[in-house]
Structures are given as C-alpha cells and as structure tokens.
C-alpha cells in the first residue's frame, strides 16, 4: 500500500507553520492492525478535503484512559501531564481523534490538569467539514443498503454524541437500521473500563457475543461503529457465528472512503 501524505506537528513547526488540527491517532490507531485501517481511512478523508493536519508521531503517548479506568490514577495523571506538556508546547488548539476513549479523556479529563483544547471525534469533524462545504459525500457504493450502527459507550452515553455518526451513514445513502438497544440504551461491546486488556470475569457469556447476537438479529449485513475497540470486539463477536453468517464491521470513516472510492 502506498504511503499516505502525513506530517507531524514538528514538521509544521520546522516550516514555521501550524496545522489546522492535530489528528490524535491513539494507541489502537497506531499499533492495532485493524485500527490502522481506520486511521488510514480518516487520513484519506482529511487529504481529500485538503485539511492541514499534523500528527504527534513519536511524541504521542497513551492518554492514560485504560490506566485511569483500571484505578491507577497516578499513572493516568503522569500520562496526562506529560501529554499536556507536549500538546501545549506545540500550541495545539484543536484535536481530532478516531478513538472515543482518547476523545473522552482529552475532552473531559485534561482541562482540569491544564490541557484545554477543542476536541472532536472524527465523525463530528467530518460533519463539520460537510456543514462548512469543505467535503461532500453523495451516496456511492452503499446506496440503499441496510447498515446498522453500534454506539460506542464513550462517544454515546459518555458524551451524548449520537447524531454525528448516524448523519454520516445517511449521507452515504444507506438505510440505517437501528439495533434494539441503541443510543443511550446501547449495550457496551465489552472492552471499556480496561476490560480490553484482561480476560472477563466468570459469567454465562461474553459481552461481545451478546451484542453480536443482537447485531445478527438485525437485517443489516454491515455494522458501523466509531471506536477501534468496539470494532475489534464486534469483529470477534460476529466471527463466532457458526453458520459463518457474514456481518462486516466497519468504522464510519471506512464506509465513507469506500462510498467515495478514495
């Protein structure tokens, strides 16, 4: 795959310029093979809209969310303070991220520690570009197809972002077929609260299987989401179906890239 055009904020600084936004890639987006595809998809969208964006590259570090939710406030605040130091040294004003966990932490938990930024989830930012006429989506591959949407907890309930991703699904002319438990009643994928990094406690079944079964009951064969962790959990969950009933899991950004053939 060819390299995408990306610059670090350091590159911008060296040129004496500053980027319009910082794209906070996140750990999953940087290292997880599945999530890297989401990162690339969003970069394609940014490039197609001619947005000047920078990434932190090797200056980026975990926001501290999994540590905080595991209970390690020390580690969280150490991470937060050093990240804030980096962000402030580059005079970052606007941050966009494809991970609802990074989004939530930077938006809600960093300000008190000295990190005040305008923070967007990528689905919000793409909507903003549409509103400002800097990017357009008109139908494409998914026209008329049924797509369902899984609300990431840290985007939905945690920050009340329910409409931004749904609006994008409508923009690609797909038919949004809601899950039974959606929006504020959505069921978690099972990864939050640091669960992603440990085996779950003893129970009758895994949470992602419970959610995958609900997705299976939906007529849509594509499930969209806006979180790399939900993506992993749902992909694993839907793969567990014995009849190999194919449900594909995509990030909203990936759907847009496919629809527009970017």
């Amino acid at each position: 795959m060819s390299k995408l055009k990306i610059k670090t904020v350091e590159d911008f600084q060296k040129e004496g310029k500053s980027a319009e936004i910082l794209f906070w890639v996140g750990c999953a987006g940087s290292f997880d093979d599945r999530a890297k595809r989401i990162t690339k998809a969003f970069v394609k969208i940014l490039n197609s809209a001619n947005i000047s964006f920078g990434v932190l590259g090797k200056d980026e570090s975990c926001t501290g969310d999994p540590a905080k939710r595991a209970g390690n406030e020390f580690l969280f605040q150490m991470q937060a303070m050093s990240n804030i130091e980096v962000l402030n040294s580059y005079e970052i004003k606007t941050i966009v991220t494809t991970c609802p966990h990074c989004f939530n932490t930077i938006k809600n938990e960093y300000p008190e520690l000295g990190g005040v930024y305008e923070v967007y989830h990528h689905t919000q930012f793409i909507n903003k570009l549409l509103e400002e006429g800097r990017f357009s989506i008109d139908g494409g591959t998914f026209r008329g197809k049924k797509i369902t949407y899984h609300d990431p907890c840290f985007l939905g309930r945690a920050n009340k972002v329910y409409n931004a991703p749904r609006n994008l699904i409508k923009k690609i002319d797909a038919e949004l077929s809601e899950l039974k438990r959606c929006k504020s009643k959505a069921l978690c994928c099972g990864a939050g609260g640091a669960q992603m990094f440990k085996e779950s406690e003893k129970g009758e079944k895994e949470i992602n299987i419970e959610r995958a079964n609900e997705i299976k009951d939906n007529p849509a064969k594509i499930v969209a989401t806006g979180c790399p962790f939900c993506n992993t959990m749902l992909t694993d969950g839907t793969k567990s179906f014995e009849d190999n009933d194919t449900v594909e899991v995509f990030d909203v950004a990936e759907l847009i890239v496919k629809a527009k053939d970017l």
């Binding site: 890639v25 750990c27 940087s30 290292f31 990434v55 932190l56 090797k58 570090s61 999994p66 992603m196």
Partner: peptide, 11 residues
C-alpha cells in the same frame, strides 16, 4: 501504550 510496542514506532 497499553501494548508492548515502541513509542518510536508510532508512525
């Protein structure tokens, strides 16, 4: 990062 990847490899 929560996984054992090197920070230098972030890009």
């Amino acid at each position: 990062a929560p996984w054992p990847y090197n920070q230098q490899d972030r890009l």
